[in-house]
Computed example of a mutant assay.
Amino acid sequence: MSRKGLRERLKNGETLVVAEGYIFEFERRGYLKSGSFVPEVVLEHPELVKSLHEEYVRSGSDVVLAFTYYAHREKLKLVNREADLKAMNMKALQIAREVADETGTLMAGNICNTTVYKRDDEDAINKARNMFKEQIEWAVEGRADFIVAETFGEFGEAMLALECIKEYGNGLPSVVTMSLPMTLNMHDGIPVDEACRRLEEAGADVVGLNCGRGPETMVEPLKIIRKACKGPIAALPVPYRTNENQVTFFSLTVPGTEKMAFPLDLSSCYCTREEIRKFAEESKSIGVQYVGICCGNAPHFLREVAAVYEKPAPALKYSPEIEKHFIFGDEKKNDPYYTQTYKKKITQK
């Protein structure tokens, strides 16, 4: 199927809505273990992975992201499945390629933070490089349209990932996004705007932020990045109510308590659809061309982003029409039965 590639779309000024967040969604559904967060569901229930890809496309995603996040050698050691490393990656790529071909969307390979990278440690750096190399080569073999390198807390690891894509990626375009910590500097001290600018100058097709921060605490860094970079920038926050006191979702507490919400109780900190829509509107005004939702994403959230970015998502057909609700609808406001029965009960509550 002939379709415009990532670079062509971006050059034409087009925007891409992108669904991430597969790890948390499958954990929520009971097909993936919190803690290790290894995507074993790819091999155990591939039909569910395909179905979620389809749901996200239906809700507006222009990209099918192969579910190879944390399907790397170091993570598979935790669950004694190193022997399944290539099989897990190739199956994820196959599923994503199939859905992309069926829906006319782009398919992206995916690499991420290795959990072994250590700056100034050549052995650790080489270990991370080799992990990137094998996943990138599999993505090429799996016919990815481009490669996403994501969720890096250190600029050095993000740059290493980009270098590996350029070396082993057979010329594929790259999207490199970092997870900004509590300050405007990456963990290795590089200011986020400088980090993005340097990645762009090194050849990344898209640079920006994903994960870590929710809508409220990602907007201001995006403005700084937009000023520093000439090309397309990316924004994929988590859909949780981070704030000036709890900047990332790692620092969120369950409302009314001091209990840490990450990772098992983050649902207590969910954004509303309106907050997601507001973020999409702000991102659009800033000039974000590559936008989506990361950990915690769900189709109804992505649909809000798609609506703002004017994507012809099939799921928009079923957007809410609360005016037709039997209690809250406009036609019920002057109904005596509604006024005396339901409205009274709601007020009492």
Results as ranks from 00 to 15, higher is better:
Glu258Lys: 14
Pro181Thr: 08
Phe326Gln: 10
Glu220Arg: 12
Leu184Thr: 11
Lys86Tyr: 05
Tyr70Thr: 10
Ala87His: 08
Thr15Val: 15
Lys324Thr: 15
Gly21Met: 02
Ile327Gly: 03
Thr105Ala: 10
Met182Lys: 13
Ala83Tyr: 11
Val63Asn: 04
Glu44Gln: 14
Ser34Asp: 12
Glu137Ser: 02
Ala202Ser: 15
Pro263Val: 13
Asn245Cys: 00
Ala161Ile: 08
Arg303Leu: 12
Arg9Leu: 14
Tyr22Ala: 11
Asp123Val: 14
Ser179Pro: 08
Ser268Cys: 09
Arg197Phe: 04
Met88Arg: 07
Arg277Ser: 12
Tyr31Phe: 15
Ala204Arg: 05
Cys294Pro: 03
Asn210Ala: 01
Thr248Pro: 07
Asn334Gly: 10
Ile327Glu: 01
Ala195Tyr: 08
Pro173Gln: 09
Glu134Tyr: 13
Met178Ala: 00
Lys349Trp: 14
Lys278His: 11
Ala108His: 02
Gly296Ala: 09
Pro221Lys: 08
Gly5Met: 07
Tyr337Asn: 12
Arg9Lys: 14
Lys118Thr: 13
Pro299His: 09
Val18His: 01
Val41Thr: 10
Ser34Ala: 15
Phe132Gly: 07
Ala66His: 06
Met88His: 05
Ala307Val: 00
Gly214Met: 05
Glu141Thr: 08
Asn185Ser: 13
Thr272Gly: 11
Arg81Phe: 01
Ala71Met: 07
Arg273Trp: 09
Gly208Cys: 10
Cys269Tyr: 04
Ala204Tyr: 03
Lys91Phe: 03
Met178Trp: 00
Arg197Gly: 02
Glu310Leu: 14
Val288Arg: 08
Lys345Gly: 03
Gly21Glu: 05
Arg119Val: 14
Arg277Phe: 01
Ile165Arg: 05
Ile322Ala: 12
Glu55Asn: 12
Tyr270Val: 09
Glu220Ser: 10
Arg213Gly: 01
Phe67Val: 00
Pro181Phe: 05
Leu316Cys: 04
Val42Tyr: 02
Ser2Glu: 15
Ala92Gly: 15
Phe250Val: 01
Tyr270Glu: 15
Val42Gln: 02
Val38Ser: 11
Gln135Leu: 11
Pro312Ile: 01
Pro336Arg: 06
Lys230Tyr: 04
Arg241Lys: 13
Ile224Asp: 04
Glu98Ala: 09
Leu199Arg: 07
Gly231Leu: 04
Glu304Thr: 09
Gly287Thr: 04
Pro237Ser: 09
Gly231Gln: 03
Val291Ile: 12
Lys259Val: 15
Lys77Arg: 14
Pro336Gln: 08
Lys86Ser: 13
Val305Tyr: 07
Val99Arg: 00
Glu98Trp: 00
Glu150Thr: 04
Tyr338Gln: 15
Glu200Ile: 04
Thr347Lys: 15
Gln246Asp: 06
Ala96Phe: 04
Asn243Ser: 01
Thr183Trp: 01
Val49Phe: 02
Thr115Gln: 10
Phe279Cys: 01
Ile125Asp: 08
Val116Lys: 02
Glu82Ala: 04
Ala234Trp: 00
Asn113Cys: 13
Thr15Asn: 13
